[in-house]
Write a protein that binds this DNA or RNA. Structure first.
Length: 518
RNA sequence: GGCCCCAUCGUCUAGCGGUCCAGGACGCUGCCCUUUCACGGCAGAAACACGGGUUCGAUUCCCGUUGGGGUCACCA
């Protein structure tokens, strides 16, 4: 017998409503952000709603601040929810499952009443023992299922009176899904096509826990139904439990939403999905924004604090597992909304590549206007206690943007523009600084001194005039000149640098170098 | 291990039976531009996991093998 389940049945006619439903057990990592992003893009593309619901049914794993973090991270990314936590309450709330606690029991009772579920009294210890025993006997994977439930303490094996008595006595119990035997559960996943699993390979999952809270499985289905979720877009790690969810919808007699299971974000190196710990290990952030662990006082770094633009970050994430089929790679959020298509999300996992992420940021940085770059430069300078003349801010920002990936590079790649060199590049010193250098520097110095206008063009013609007159090649004087003024062997145009520094400073640096490099 | 999902350059991917001795991007290499670095421009190396089918014809469809991933809790 088949429990055929075609979730595609004209669901598209009703309004698109999707949700991102994280568990507040810590900071959201980039895989979660991508899931939220795809949900958001899909919703906006179809004029639908994007909701944020918090799945905090496991009180033991609750982490203070995690919910706030999630809201803030999504807001930074520009994908704030229309409804739910961090969005509006449109009458479907509360949007925190812990606050919905009272309503789940009733649904569990419904399942009990229609014979889709049963009560079980086995304690955690007892279950552990059974599993250990099974393992010793060579069965590595003991399941609470249509066979083993016959030997357990539940409402299927115990007399009705006994069950009633136990419950009346306050004995703790759980409610388990009663899976039908040998049924093929089929559903159509938007990304993967038809997925099929036999109930014989599934187990009687706990739906309602001893602590009075539902498990994810029950709460998820009830809430998605009540909140009229049309499409469930989530990570592939949920694929194995999707058949259970399909069965739950059928047990309730509800129409199932359309499922789409996203491919996972994998570690750049070894095997496995990208985890929270990979960040430190590999030297790149795995979180959207900084996360401070209150217990350990440690901070896990985020993309925001690393200097990423939210648009670049989102752009990078969007292309990890999806692409428009054209050769376009740079997308604004709005363009992503227009181009996004769930059906063209790839099936296989994507290894995360930080280098590509940096490239995206570089592209966004270079695309910035002079005003914006100047203001970014100013911010960076201020935070370092450095200063640059207002009138040069734009010039410096544009000049440095060519070699910057992050805003902070605007300063760090050109520190010599804001402070005198304290050391001189060793290699350039030995290779380019000759016995004639001090004399040449003095000559240039005196010529600069005579300059009335000290701008890049004047400096250049003055400098080149000197070269011509003395019949010297640029390579003979240029590098040592750069060394004297900046302490470096390479960098942007010296003439622009000199203009920015100003005559007085340039002359001071030259004499300082002559003095120091004797 | 059981079950499920997946499989094109190092990485992200295009390709939905002939247009593919496989296209783009990141990274890498070389050349040009440049006093230098960077930017930019140009060029290059680099992939259809394997074996069977189906077909006049498979990267594209089917099966198997191998490989990878996920999942097997009173966690989500």
């Amino acid at each position: 017998m088949y429990l055929c389940h075609n979730s595609k049945v004209n669901n598209m006619s009703s309004k698109v409503r999707v949700r991102f439903a994280p568990s507040p057990t810590g900071p959201l990592h980039i895989g979660g952000v991508r899931t939220a992003l795809y949900n958001y893009l899909f919703a906006k593309k179809h004029g639908g709603d994007f909701l944020l619901r918090v799945e905090d049914t496991d009180q033991t794993r609750f982490v203070a601040g995690a919910e706030k973090y999630i809201v803030e991270a999504l807001a930074w990314c520009g994908i704030s929810p229309d409804e739910g936590i961090g969005g509006e309450d449109r009458g479907n709330g509360p949007y925190r499952q812990s606050e919905r606690k009272p309503m789940y029991r009733e649904y569990a009772e419904t399942l009990l009443a229609n014979d889709s579920a049963y009560v079980a009294f086995d304690t955690a210890d007892e279950l552990e023992r059974v599993r250990a025993l099974a393992k010793e006997a060579g069965a590595s994977n003991w399941q609470y299922n249509y066979i083993t439930r016959e030997n357990m303490k539940n409402s299927l094996t115990l007399a009705k009176d006994e069950v009633k008595a136990k419950i009346a006595a306050g004995e703790p119990y759980v409610i388990r899904m009663k899976l039908p035997r040998d049924h093929e559960v089929r559903f159509e996943d938007t990304i993967r096509g038809w997925v099929s699993v036999n109930t014989n390979n599934m187990d009687d999952k706990v739906l309602f826990k001893g602590d009075g809270m539902p498990t994810y499985h029950l709460a998820n289905i009830v809430d998605d139904h009540l909140m009229e979720i049309s499409h469930v877009i989530r990570g592939e790690e949920w694929l194995p439990s999707a058949p259970l969810h399909v069965l739950l919808y059928e047990a309730f007699g509800w129409e199932s939403p359309i499922f789409a299971h996203l491919p996972l974000l994998l570690k750049p190196d070894g095997p496995g999905k990208l985890s929270k710990r990979d960040g430190d290990r590999l030297g790149f952030p795995v979180f959207p924004i900084d996360w401070k662990n209150d217990e350990t006082q440690e901070t896990a770094s985020g993309y925001r604090e690393t200097g990423f633009y939210p648009d670049a970050f989102i752009n990078m994430l969007a292309l990890l597992g999806w692409n428009p089929g054209t050769e376009q790679e740079v997308f604004s959020l709005q363009e992503l909304v227009e181009a996004f298509d769930l059906g063209s999300v790839s099936k296989s996992g994507a290894k995360f590549d930080f280098e590509k992420g940096k490239w995206f940021n570089q592209v966004y940085l270079r695309g910035m206007s002079e005003e914006k770059l100047a203001s970014a430069l100013k911010t960076e300078l201020n935070s370092r206690g450095l200063h640059c003349d207002e009138k040069h801010l734009g010039t410096v920002a544009m000049m440095m943007s060519e070699r910057a990936t992050f805003p902070k590079d605007l300063v760090t790649e050109g520190l010599f523009l804001f402070e005198r060199p304290s050391t001189y590049d060793e290699k350039t010193l030995t290779k380019k600084w000759s016995a004639d250098s001090p004399k040449m520097m003095e000559d240039i110095s005196s010529r600069f001194l005579a300059l009335v206008t000290f701008d890049a063009a004047s400096i250049e013609s003055c400098f080149k005039g000197y070269l011509t007159e003395k019949e010297l090649g640029f390579g003979k004087v240029g590098p040592s000149f750069r060394l004297a003024v900046t302490g470096k062997g390479m960098g942007p145009s010296m003439f622009t640098i000199c203009e920015v520094l100003g005559k007085e400073e340039v002359l001071a640096r030259i004499s300082l170098a002559i003095e120091k490099l004797k």
